[in-house]
Simulated scan of single mutants.
Amino acid sequence: MIIVLGFFVAAVVIFPTFKPGDLVTGLGITSVAVGFAFKDVLQNFFAGILILWRRPFVVGDQIKFREFDGTVEEINVRSTRIKTYDGERAVIPNGEIYTSALLVRTAYERRRVSLIVGIGYRDSIEEARETMMRALKKTEGVLDQPSPSAHVVELAPSSVNFNVLFWTKSQRADVRLTSDRVITSIKLALDEAGIDMPYPHSVVMFHDVTVKRKGDLERCKDLEL
Rank of each mutant, 00 (worst) to 15 (best):
E96Y: 12
T99C: 04
V164E: 00
R105D: 13
L165W: 09
V153Q: 02
A101I: 14
R110T: 15
Q145A: 09
D174M: 08
T80L: 03
V142Q: 04
R105F: 13
H207D: 06
T210K: 08
H207N: 08
Y121C: 03
E127D: 15
V113I: 14
S170Y: 11
A135K: 03
I97H: 04
A189K: 01
K212Y: 12
I125G: 03
V91Q: 06
T178S: 07
P200T: 04
I92M: 05
K187P: 00
R219W: 06
S124C: 05
F166C: 03
A150E: 05
D222I: 15
E109T: 15
D222Q: 14
I195E: 00
E127V: 05
K137T: 12
D222T: 15
A90E: 11
L103H: 12
T99L: 09
E96L: 14
V77H: 14
K214A: 02
E154T: 03
A193M: 01
E218T: 11
A156S: 15
S179E: 11
S170L: 09
V153R: 02
E126L: 10
L217Q: 10
D144P: 08
M132F: 06
D86Y: 10
T210W: 10
T99Q: 09
A107M: 10
R78K: 15
I92A: 07
N161A: 02
M132W: 03
V175E: 10
A150S: 06
Q145S: 11
R129D: 13
D180G: 11
H151A: 11
Y108L: 13
R111M: 12
K83V: 13
E109L: 12
Y85L: 12
L103T: 13
L177S: 11
V203N: 06
K169T: 13
K187N: 12
A173D: 10
D144S: 11
S147R: 08
G87I: 07
T106S: 07
S147W: 10
R172E: 15
